[in-house]
Design a protein around this nucleic acid. Structure first.
Lengths: 342, 342
DNA sequence: TTGTACGCGTTATCAT
DNA sequence: ATGATAACGCGTACAA
């Protein structure tokens, strides 16, 4: 147990604690060498707790995500980690998609961290107001809450991504286009659904195959299965996140539905193995690491500039990555196949 | 800024700070209701820093992993998170495979956390002696350092997994079996290589296709490419972790090598999409979440029982998950194909 | 049951 | 440049 304090070092060297403290803070003092040696000999480490108490700061930034095993959030965390810098650390909270855990975590966080980067479960939360009430800086990443405008955000251009995906399918000639959507209570869920519906409307297509699911692999599986059950099944589907895409692919595989011959599929968020599956998966991609890094930068800016900082909003761009999972609908394939599939 | 302290509450109610403190600790005091109300009215939150200083504990357990975007480590973290309990939290440190960051993080951790669960970069580190010197409880997960025996560990039965994988290939009739190994300086790297070599030797097969790589996707790609370059290429390959498996699959795909007809492949660690690729991937699987949970349990046990606790070692089992990526070598396929592939 | 007063380890202020 | 000391906010032994 390192029960050795600054006082012990001071006594050992024969100076006052103030001198040791100053040396630690980088000031020039008299017995530099002796002090350095004493610190090593005694194995002295400053107490973080005492420093926190004195300074009111902890040097720790919390990052709250719904599910760390989702590769997207893992990348967000990695990006944030990379941008946190030398003298701060990250406290990860994985809420496991549980509102209870999220609330509890938020309460616990106060006083332990200097700020919170968070991807809230849903938009209708009181968490953030809770924090703003206490003056703890907060930055939203990927998702916001209702009064999210008042805080800095690092989001994705969700609507644009959904529009690109939908238009891609429309351009291929699809008329019966499905969307397996995320919860409309979340930012990305809502925005992507909006983008999808807007594209459909613009092209004069009806919105007949819209399923609100839950961003999970199981949800994607169930939704895709339901879609395939329908008498008049869609010829193309847009899945609103990586996990649901995986689930949908499993459903397709289990039922022996051929992609893209029988159905086209495009997912939001790239997957590590998108090129390995057969056919390679066409997706809307974005740089999640960058998004995490941006969130951290916004947080550090707030921490540096103080409470008076104006909230800033950064946006990560999306792009279409065409691989092989989208093709014209079957009735058009003899005409357009060559043009599109290669 | 929540600059409201316990003193403010005490004054507001008209009692002493001790009474408030006792109330907070769950003791029965006189003005329960008034106190409760005052706490709400004033928005009082106990200072974690002050509590830490007093108690010497932080309620935070650090978990140090090399790469959080590796799904395996993400699952470890998730498992640990699930077992951490109500009144503790997790501090995640992602070292990004950098020894520097790892060392720095360890130093920063002291005083901020009650214990450290860690997957060290390599076995030849001084980290643990560093910790034992300071009396900070430590539990190794997935990997240990040289003197790891002295600490609690939550490992996988790596040698067994490698043996099962290798024997599976041998049983199919393969003679030219390659291994794309992890760094021999790491626990899993070394143990899996040992298991592979032992199996070969037991069957009287030479070890001609052993490549030490680095557990990364790029490394797996390079190693697989090198293997395919060889005049007398192997007919089967065992990849020592998930990322290298992905890399190897990419290399195979890029060169148009058919699996399992031209080459069989089996990987250590299951993949989310193992069933989605063509052919579905045969793997050695283990329960990473359980492993993380076990590590956390060992840590909590140590924290509860104090420094006198004897180190314990828990082991997570492995199992063969046969899918479609392994078949007899080409020259035998006419004979054995039916028997094995279905 | 309640209040007083001290200590936890550090940093900052004030004199020297 | 240095030393003594107050203060950070909380918990708790001690006395009442």
């Amino acid at each position: 147990m390192s029960t050795v304090t600054i006082t012990d070092v001071a006594k050992h060297v024969g100076v006052s604690v103030a001198t040791i403290s100053r040396h630690l803070s980088g000031f020039t003092v008299r017995n530099e060498e002796k002090i350095r040696q004493a610190i090593i000999d005694l194995n002295y480490r400053p107490s973080a707790a005492a420093r926190n108490l004195k300074s009111g700061r902890t040097g720790i930034i919390a990052i709250v995500v719904p599910d760390i095993t989702n590769p997207f959030f893992a990348s967000i965390v990695e990006g944030a980690e990379g941008a946190v810098g030398e003298d701060r650390m990250i406290l990860l909270v994985n809420t496991g998609d549980s509102r209870q855990r999220e609330e509890k975590a938020l309460a616990q966080l106060f006083g332990r961290v200097d700020g919170v980067i968070m991807a809230p479960l849903t938009e209708d939360e009181e968490g953030p107001s809770f924090f703003s009430q206490f003056g703890l800086p907060i930055v939203f990443v990927d998702r916001v809450t209702q009064d999210g405008e008042k805080f800095s955000t690092a989001l994705t251009d969700n609507a644009k991504g959904a529009t690109i995906a939908t238009n891609h399918l429309i351009a291929l000639g699809h008329k019966k286009i499905a969307m397996i959507s995320g919860p409309l209570s979340t930012t990305p869920g809502k925005k992507r659904a909006d983008g999808f519906k807007a594209s459909l409307k613009e092209s004069g297509l009806p919105c007949q195959y819209f399923i609100e699911s839950d961003f999970s692999e199981e949800g994607g599986y169930a939704a895709m299965s339901a879609l395939l059950e329908r008498e008049d099944a869609p010829t193309a589907v847009f899945t609103a996140n990586n996990l649901m895409t995986i689930g949908a692919l499993h459903a397709l595989r289990d039922r022996g539905v051929a992609v893209p011959n029988q159905i086209s599929i495009i997912g939001f968020d790239d997957l590590d193995f998108a090129e390995l599956i057969n056919p390679p998966l066409t997706v809307i991609a974005r740089d999640a690491r960058l998004q995490g890094a941006l969130a951290m930068e916004l947080m550090i800016k707030q921490l540096t500039n103080g409470a008076s900082t104006q909230p800033e909003h950064s946006m990560v761009d999306v792009q279409l990555v065409e691989r092989g999972s989208c093709a014209p609908p079957r009735e058009m394939q003899t005409i357009a196949f060559n043009k599109v599939d290669r």
